[in-house]
Design a protein around this nucleic acid. Structure first.
Lengths: 296, 296
DNA sequence: CTCCATTGTCTACAAATGTGGACGATAGAT
DNA sequence: ATCTATCGTCCACATTTGTAGACAATGGAG
């Protein structure tokens, strides 16, 4: 098994441009460095450094070799620092669970910069639409989108965002079928619903008036982007969070229907197991998400 | 100076989940490995592995340490391979220049897999809309989108793609203003043009008939995506390469106008300085791009 | 419960590496 | 041309590491 210390010795010697300066810097005899590099060159079968008593140049292949040797050195120092706790920022794994749409719509934008901000922290996201027992399954944070308030489950709840649910349709559909003027008009329109058992939409306006409306089911899909595409295609009217259809609305491929009314709202809440002495890394994640989202 | 071989020994032991299997794999005595890892733990002052005669688990800090140790091993192997010439792939820097739209539309998809395919090659892309003197400014490859054939500039030309330019409009616009049935109908339609001095569109069909048509200038922009959005918004008819409006066409927010006719085509050509002994890395890039694009 | 195959640890001894100091080479100062 | 300070190399000896084999521990098979 090759002596990989020789790679590091070589990297140091190149960094310091000579055996004598490197020996002084490392506080080891220069004969040690000379011997080690000579041995390395012998076993590799190449000349890494051309040197005389007063000249010192790294060969071209020595430069290539040096790059990897230097990278090794960096990794070695990082390994040691990990153990010695030199790096002060949060570290370790933070396990997050969220539904697939939440993962796609919110976390896909948030987690990469989080990971960049905390290089020593490892973010692990589990996106699933099944029920997750947060404590039992060892997650640190669960991200929940919900329409009604969450029950008290003994976990710390931190609301981080609220998004209005809007009725939208394509201009083509509305030109073809007419603009609804009142929620009751919706019963004569084609609805793009999440499911056939959906009870329609509960509309609320700023005056606090609440109306339950039931459009004609025209298209069913329990995936928001499919509903979005269907709406853009002019199939009918759908109800989606503002965030999901913002791009299409801005592009004009979708427009608001009954702009003074909202079909409820969706709240995003972080759930953390309620245990004492929460890890700094979990706290860092929560603070990061809170800072990046408008308060609900 | 710490014995960094111990880091590598540790990485091997973790990889093989035990001293005995690692010893067999490395063909060294297990006592050597046991002693080295024990020494490493002693000097670091932490337990990296919990083990008994039949149990073997890596501690959490051992996992963190392992990641860097494994990275060290990879660098060591790469260093050795550099010298031994094991890596056959091209290396060094390839400098590419292209216009901003070309960079966004084509290279943004091609260059990441290229860089993945050739880990030893460093790809440097300079995206600019100003004139670039390829040879003078030291580029290896220039990617040019052009409508007319390129002049003979003494450089090697390699056509790699041709994209038809289509007339498109939103369904809303067409329902409102009617579908053109013939190119001559376009003179009564709103045109979304690249510039006011644009001489309209030169239409060609499969029979080889060529017609010059001039729509009413309704919106001017020399940025394709702005034209795209304008078309989607129902402002009029525009001429764009198929590639640019493919998503909207698939989504139904844009439809073909006069589907039997094309408004010319845009060709993508790679330009390389014509010098003898072209670098293997440049050749590799060209071959990669050619293989990934449909021939023009 | 017993037996057995295999694990990881320990240690005395063999082998390899680290080192101080001498020495030839060299480039700059005088 | 000469001198000097410092370079990298070499080598005999000191120090450290590698190893074979014994041994306690352990989990699965019977």
């Amino acid at each position: 098994m090759r002596n990989l210390n020789d790679f590091i010795v070589f990297a140091h010697v190149v960094d310091h441009k000579g055996f004598a300066p490197a020996a002084r810097a490392l506080n080891v005899p220069k004969s040690t460095l000379s011997k080690r590099v000579a041995e390395l060159e012998r076993t590799l079968g190449v000349r890494l450094i051309n040197r005389t008593s007063r000249r010192f140049t790294v060969t071209e292949i020595g430069e290539d070799f040096y790059r990897h040797a230097a990278a090794m050195l960096i990794e070695a120092e990082a390994a040691e620092a990990v153990v010695k706790g030199r790096l002060a920022e949060p570290s370790g794994t933070v396990r997050i669970t969220a539904s697939v749409p939440t993962a796609q719509m919110m976390l896909a934008d948030l987690l990469p910069p989080l990971a960049l901000a905390y290089p020593k922290m490892r973010v692990m996201l589990h996106a699933t639409d099944r029920f997750v027992d947060v404590v039992q399954e060892g997650f640190d944070i669960a991200v929940r989108d919900h329409f009604a308030p969450l029950p008290d489950s003994g976990m710390v709840q931190r609301r981080v965002a609220t998004d209005a649910i809007l009725l939208v349709a394509s201009p083509a559909y509305l030109e073809n079928r007419g603009h609804p003027r009142d929620p009751s008009d919706l019963s004569r329109h084609d609805g793009l619903l999440a499911s056939l058992t959906s009870e329609g939409w509960t509309m609320r306006n700023e005056a606090g008036v609440v109306v339950r409306v039931r459009p004609m089911p025209r298209f069913l899909a329990d995936e928001s982007h499919v509903l979005l595409s269907a709406a853009v295609s002019g199939l009918g009217i759908t109800a989606l969070p503002r965030k999901i259809c913002r791009t299409e609305m801005e592009a004009g491929s979708l427009v608001r229907v009954l702009p003074d009314w909202e079909a409820g709202s969706v709240t995003t809440t972080l759930l953390m197991p309620h245990r004492r002495g929460q890890l700094p890394s979990v706290r860092a994640v929560v603070d990061f998400i809170v800072a990046r989202l408008p308060a609900g």
